[in-house]
Design a protein around this nucleic acid. Sequence first.
DNA 1: TAGAATGAAAT
DNA 2: ATTTCATTCTA
Length: 941
Amino acid sequence: MKGSNRNKDHSAEGEGAGKRPKRKCLQWHPLLAKKLLDFSEEEEEEDEEEDIDKVQLLGADGLEQDVGETEDDESPEQRARRPMNAFLLFCKRHRSLVRQEHPRLDNRGATKILADWWAVLDPKEKQKYTDMAKEYKDAFMKANPGYKWCPTTNKPVKSPTSTVNPRKKLWAFPSDSSRDLSSPKKAKTEEMPQLNFGMADPTQMGGLSMLLLAGEHALGTPEISSGTCRPDVSESSELRQKSPLFQFAEISSGTSHPDVPSKQCQASALFQFAEISSNTSQLGGAEPVKRCGKSALFQLAEMCLASEGVKMEESKLIKAKESDGGRIKELEKGKEEREIKMEKIDEARLQKEAEFEKSAKENVGDSKELRNFEELRMDDIMGIKMEAPKEIKKEELEEDQKCSHFPDFSYSASSKIIISDVPSRKDHMCHPHGIMIIEDPTALSKPEKLKKKKKKNKMDRHGNDKSTPKKTCKKRQSSESDIESVMYTIEAVAKGDWGIEKLGETPRKKVRTSSSGKGSILDAKPPKKKVKSREKKMSKEKSSDTTKESRPQDFISISASKNISGEVPEGIKAEPLTPTEDALPPSLSGQAKPEDSDCHRKIETCGSRKSERSCKGALYKTLVSEGMLTSLRANVDRGKRSSGKGNSSDHEGCWNEESWTFNQSGTSGSKKFKKTKPKEDSLLGSAKLDEEFEKKFNSLPQYSPVTFDRKCVPVPRKKKKTGNMSSEPTKTSKGPFQSQKKNLFHKIVSKYKHKKEKPNVPEKGSGDKWSNKQLFLDAIHPTEAIFSEDKNTTEPAYKVKNAPSIPSTPEPTTTQEPLVGSQKRKARKTKITHLVRTADGRVSPAGGTLDDKPKEQLQRSLAKVTETGCNDECSHNREATETRSSTPEMPAVSAFFSLAALAEVAAMENVHRGQRSTPLTHDGQPKEMPQAPVLISCADQ
DNA sequence: TAGAATGAAAT
DNA sequence: ATTTCATTCTA
């Protein structure tokens, strides 16, 4: 429960005295610490008491409370951890892979390998990580303005004013103690992304409202569309700063309201989120969330509304047609209700639209907006609760059946545009909205408690939800889910991943679905394990808590969802929406009406807001119907799994494959989707912020070991370094290189040998496991698994594929480095940096004698990889890259070759293609197909 | 708990 | 320049 978390925190704190010593930096300034402590205590109490109460309060104060909760988890003392640098990010992302490859290796060995990889890593790729790190750091700093890396002593002196002030601001904004706590906590706990996310998620973001806000904020407009390509919009250096993470941070901290405004427009979704999350309550007051004109989201919402209208009509028609015998009655009932709602909704819609546009255009006052958002949230929540009606359930069930009968509903067409992928359609068609909706409720109820209480509460929560505060819980859930959905949608919109993601989603769903509701728990466990381990290890750190929280929520949500899906009665709670939607059908009426109507009823007070709500709701629904949310969630899940669990790597491979199979196999039943979707939703529900971070993190390219190996071959230095250190006499010479392939093989083997050697593995040769063949296999095999992992990872896979053909450079073995200890490190650093510079800076190749060549090769390989990822469209790019690669300046060239552009193209391609045909053929290395679902590949970037 | 790696920040 | 610490996890 919360207590546990808190206790941990506290314990951590108390223990912290003992443990903390190391992390001096973590502690805030004395002043802050005091405040924090006070707040923390209060919050804790509040949280505990309020767990349930909070739910109720959610509506108005929910945001604050949530924030407080999230914050509460983290002890004030713990403070946020310093952001990871590029290398750490890289390690985090690839360590699992390394471990996978070399289970025997201990972490140190893995770290060494990672270092080698890092050294070899293409400057471009490195740049990605550096950028990410920078972005993250910026976001972090924004969130924690006064944060100092190494406070050495607790002296508050240095940061005093600056740090204090910003924090004060944050606190000030939060007006409420809880808020105050939240903001400080955020800053403290923020730990990186996780905390921030956690903070943001629960509290304020009314899902829909968040979408709108986020969209408005973040999207200057076009940014969203391109997503990764955002840079195009802002392209300037600012882009990165404003990158989503940064925005998130701002949001979370709520610090820079005044300052931010101008920036915000440009700010990325993450950053905005951060601001929203942190400020949410604050927003009302100060934030001028500036909406740069209509955001893409807004437009999207409009589109949705329009589409919904169409859908409504269509749905009606369909219903009429469908209505047969017994079902007809029910359907008719539903229709009538729906129609009524529809009428109301239509009217409301018009008003809302008008209002919405106005608000969006006008940059409504912050306070107003905030209020509106809150209200919206409340309304939405209420609406959801209200809608949840039992009647709907029946309808849904029927509808599901119908869906099976009528796989294709025309009404979905509007949404289809966005969704390129086919497989999910049926499901979506059948349960377009329902699933999403369902997810929300489950997720909502769970997340709240989960954060604090985490896993244990699952059972309790269900009971509680049922008994008392369903409404409240639902509200929260809805809000949270909405938030998440919003986040996803935003990201998805920006990235244009929708279609791609969908594919992945469906399979996932299936997988999950396959596992029964109970299975869900099992599923949850693996991730937990990692989390737990972290927690144990990290005991001090809040991060562990956060991780637990977020994940546990997911798990819980999942379990709940599963239960729901599996069990009709329970499912009703969660599903109600789906039925309503389905029943109401297809059209907007079902979706918009119920919520809107409810909202209107309850929220009579705010008339204008209704319009916004409706818009948001419509948008949300559309997103849901289209599967956008699911896809997003799926992505998130991936990220969580990958990042969260060590297992991720392992599972990923399998999982991915499964996903593939599922995808291909299909879109079978709607029921499956339901189950799966809820799971996803639940997962998604956890921490949006975390997800955001994870998404980005996941978006970072993940390279298959093979790639590195190959690269390494050309760039043996580093390895050699290590190799030399450990054991030099690489037998690379072993075979004469008859063919390049052989060379590659040899290289790979040699690399592996080296790696293994490090760990004291028997030297090559025919060594036990390590026969060359096996080494080679090992080297290759892992890659595949890697591919499967994430979209991003997929790209790397391509790289790998390409790689074999590429490298031909013989071994470099030359450099001997007797250096030891710190010297070694220094030497390495210098060398590495040097290399990096050359690569990144395009700096003179002269700088690195040996290094240059390897780098070039690597770059080539990378370029190829990227190209491959892009496939067809990118072909031109490829050519360009290749040509570039040929030149010594490759690195520079590669830099020119903007990833963003590639990503865009890829995205476009993916969308068009739906599925990509195996493009790799040219390279001649066919396999690996499945992973590729390449879909992923480009999107991330 | 030390420690392997790198890097950013602070001292 | 050097120290601190971020992540990860084993021995």
